[in-house]
């Protein structure tokens, strides 16, 4: 069972913590366990979602790379977590899914990376709006954050707060200098 890493939103330095996973993923053929927080597939959410959400527990969904986050729009405000599966680390579809969730559907809950989740892709995930990770490579929270913030600058806006390099340039040009957390340890 991989451990769960969460970005610490309350900290002004990039930080992450290992946390206890409160959710149980329930396969389609398994019965819904009593009284615990659960994550189900999209098809189960479609068929049983209303009952599950009414049962007084937190409910999340796990999406395969081919499943569209747009299909969640109606349920989204009631979902506690959206888990996006990396079938292989080379399959980049979840990056788009995460950005659409955050930037277009304005989803505020947890977006968790599950599956073939590796430290080398930590930056891409964080920038696209993931805030929880089940690393398949045993990364610690410190290693995860170090990898995610290894670059001092970024060239594009994404789902995170970072400003692109041209904004830094404009600030330097106007004499404001730039405020950024210094490189986080390797």
């Amino acid at each position: 069972m991989p451990s769960l890493i969460k970005l610490d939103a309350g900290s002004d330095q990039p930080r992450a913590l290992t946390v206890q996973d409160a959710f149980v993923f329930v396969h389609d053929e398994e019965p819904i366990p009593a009284a615990c927080d659960i994550v189900v597939t999209l098809s189960r959410l479609s068929s049983e979602g209303d009952d599950l959400l009414a049962s007084g527990r937190r409910v999340g969904v796990r999406l395969q790379p081919s499943e569209a986050v747009e299909d969640l729009a109606y349920d989204l405000p009631r979902l506690a977590v959206v888990q996006l599966v990396f079938a292989k680390f080379r399959d980049g579809r979840p990056y788009s899914s995460a950005r659409v969730l955050r930037e277009r559907l304005a989803y505020q809950g947890e977006v968790r990376a599950v599956g073939d989740v590796l430290r080398e892709q930590a930056m891409h995930m964080v920038r696209c709006g993931f805030d929880a990770f089940e690393p398949a490579d045993g990364s610690s929270p410190e290693q995860w954050v170090a990898a995610a913030y290894r670059y001092r600058h970024v060239y594009q806006r994404a789902a995170d707060e970072r400003e692109p390099i041209h904004v830094e340039r404009a600030q330097i040009a106007s004499g404001l200098g730039h405020n950024r957390p210094d490189e986080v340890g390797a």
């Binding site: 680390f89 080379r90 399959d91 980049g92 990056y95 788009s96 950005r99 892709q121 930056m123 891409h124 920038r127 696209c128 670059y151 970024v154 060239y155 594009q156 994404a158 390099i165 041209h166």
Partner: peptide, 13 residues
């Protein structure tokens, strides 16, 4: 060149 460098979303096309 700048936009595409280390693009967070489009590095695993």
């Amino acid at each position: 060149r700048e936009w595409s460098t280390v693009h967070p979303e489009f590095s695993y096309l």
